[in-house]
Design a protein around this nucleic acid. Sequence first.
RNA 1: GCCGGGAUGGCGGAACUGGUAUACGCAGGGGACUUAAAAUCCCCCGGCGCAUAGCGCCUUGCGGGUUCGAGUCCCGCUCCCGGCACCA
Length: 837
Amino acid sequence: MPGFYDFRAIEAKWRQKWRDDGIFHVKRDKSKPKYYLLEMFPYPSGKLHVGHLRNYAIGDAIARRKRMDGFNVLHPIGWDSFGMPAENAAIQHKSHPYIWTRNNIDEMRRQFDLMGISYDWSREVATSHPGYYRWTQWIFARMFDEGKAYQKKSFVNWCAHCHTVLANEQVVEGNCWRCDCTVEQQERVGWFLKITDYAEDLLTGLNELEGQWPDRVLTMQKNWIGKSYGAEVDFPIEGGGVIKVFTTRPDTLYGATFMALAPEHPLAMELAKGTELENDVKNFVKQTIAQDKTERTADGVEKSGVFTGRYATNPLSGELIPIWIANFVLIEYGSGAIMSVPAHDQRDFEFATKYDLDIKLVISPDEESVNKTPEQLELDSDALVEAYTGDGVMVNSGPFDGLHNREEGIDRVVAYLQDKGIGKRTVNYRLRDWGVSRQRYWGAPIPIVHCGECGVVRVPDDQLPVVLPTDIEFPENGLSPISGLDSFINTRCPKCDGPAKRETDTMDTFMCSSWYFNRYTSARCDTTMADMEDVDYWMPVDQYVGGIEHAILHLLYARFFTRFLKDIGAVGVAEPFSRLLTQGMVIKDGAKMSKSKGNVVPLDDMAQRYGSDATRLFILFASPPERDLEWSDDGIDGAFRFLGRVYRLIDTNIDTIRGGGEPPEGLDGLPGNLADLRRTTHKTIARVTADFEKFHFNTSIARIMELLNKLTTALKPTDDPVACAVFREAAEAMVVMLQPFTPHLSDELWERMGNNGYVIDHPWPKADPRCLVEESIVIVIQVNGKLRGRLNAPVDISREDMEKMALANEKVADFIKGKTIQKVVVVPGKLVNIVAR
RNA sequence: GCCGGGAUGGCGGAACUGGUAUACGCAGGGGACUUAAAAUCCCCCGGCGCAUAGCGCCUUGCGGGUUCGAGUCCCGCUCCCGGCACCA
């Protein structure tokens, strides 16, 4: 049946051809500029829905377009296939995570292929494959050797439901990022990566990403790293020892009237030992630590504390100040101890008021305060109803009195401390080391052996990978199956060959995803993590596409890994992702589309009803990429109708189109209607090209729809070779520009129009400036800024003529009747505004 | 509380650098084709008013301002979304 858009047959046919010809298979080729386009690889959770598709449809459009621009495009895909859902599903179905994962990967691979995404499947990786995690372990080993991976006992985030430790980045508002359960603090031994060694570098690196990454991602990372400038100061404890504090306000040191330790601080219990307050302290510490962190740090929670019975000396004023333990002091920030300046810090103020501690004003907004007596200043302190956190003149501060706190005070106090050897200028970061031990099974084993003789020994490179045993059973108690698996645990020490035990914790899966983009450059390399020549050719990723939810997690970790890998010479770049696009969520019925919400639209259904092309087209048309997208079942109908119209128009006029050769140059000599069509064709090319550059796919598609509307009215059966040529040019431009969105249909129509090869290998069309020339222009006429008429005028009309034409206009006359013309504004080639009052 | 982002027809969304607001699509209405329906094609479609082939007024969350002219710039609000939040 002519004109019937048989998308099922068309899509199957072209996918087969692409596969047979291996057209997405790329090789390193130094004669061509490279372009590395990457979408964040998925966790293989099962069936894909249209919400998932968005990420890949955006990436594919860019990858296809770049190839048309002559780039050697690397567009790979793989699977972030270690992780808890597989393990949980396996436990539930009495199966094995390996089976579950493999089945899901097979299913998702099929669906990606069904969508016609231009992946080079020969580079597919799966993080749970020993050929991959061998190199994750290898990187861990390098980190161990460089002192960047270490073991320590500390308070860690524990999710009882998931039965594992979580990194700080994986705790969202006190809850587990996966299961949303409350996270508790537990003291445990675990492995950490020294991401803090890179804090400064990760921060300054953000500068070069400005304009290339979304601002909000940069801001979020900056806040997360949380750099602050200040000083480290030693406070001697009466009776021996010192307490180190970090402060951003050395200028207020004279006002420090007490100290406060975090309950977890090692000195907390020790100081109270032997005093009559020992029991109170013990109770308070126990109670506070037991409290979960959200509760303890929640908004409006009252500050509370307990006196240790001990004193320290304020190193500047020489006064003895009491040492307290306070719930609002955090062990993980700074040194876990603070100097408290109630007059100038709101928290300290509240605490001091509650426990009746001294408040000493040392910064005054009022210049005259310098001349006040100590008694008067004391009265001022008593009069405070809240902390004064602003700037001013230093008072009550010995030799520093009279200095402006910020302009001079901070520097002078720090210089003094440094001089006396009791403090120094320093910066402090909020970023903590990354805890990577997981007490779960389905992850890469940490390549470490514990030997009674040699201690902690890393597994030598030639014994990697440490294979995750697959012949396991899940114990009832929720523990990892390998934690009690003797055949795995018992081994020999690589150093002394004595009996030793394997580490049974596995790695955080974010480690697996922190370097995968390197692996794609030489996915089957078995001598190293990635072949150096390939990494050098392909890295960095030119355009990364993914969800905003990884603004900190994955994107920060990957930046850290890349810096480390550069330091050891394994990669050549420090920043892995030159440009980042974060796509919005797909919303249905007011909520993010997700399996757990039960509002998913399965991809298979859409492919079956409308085809892959229509599904891809709609998801790119409905909203610009960065914004959220409201899924509409009716909307996809429209996309499908549009493709049907494209198909029908070309199919039913195929002879006319095929009759056209190269159109003549420019617009000269073309009859009006053809000149008009040709102008539209080239204008559309110009606009689609520009919009695509900015990834405004929605408007790109809208322009192509306009071209179709125009061509539908213009295209008539004819033998005239010139007309045929103009029709053909329009039809081809449309089909070629649709290729990044609807590749199957484009190739089909391209072939029918008598062309060889694939559209993706055809260059993106160029707008010919000679075809953009307008015959006449519309001049807008306004009176007092209001639209009163439009006129056709020659393109080269002069300002004077524009003004004359406007004033001669009847409508204008009506509106200026009885008024005086005060001014005439002429915008050449655009508009005339007559100001009459 | 602090830091971002946003608010445009019934809906998703357009609008270059301050210069024709509502492109494109959806939904809706009317018509053609058909025995009928689907599909397709054509027309209409922000609101109000009137002397209704037309004309006028109003309209981009609210209130001001700058300007010949503001969806766009400035000031002050409201609401929504996201991030951070006792960070010393």
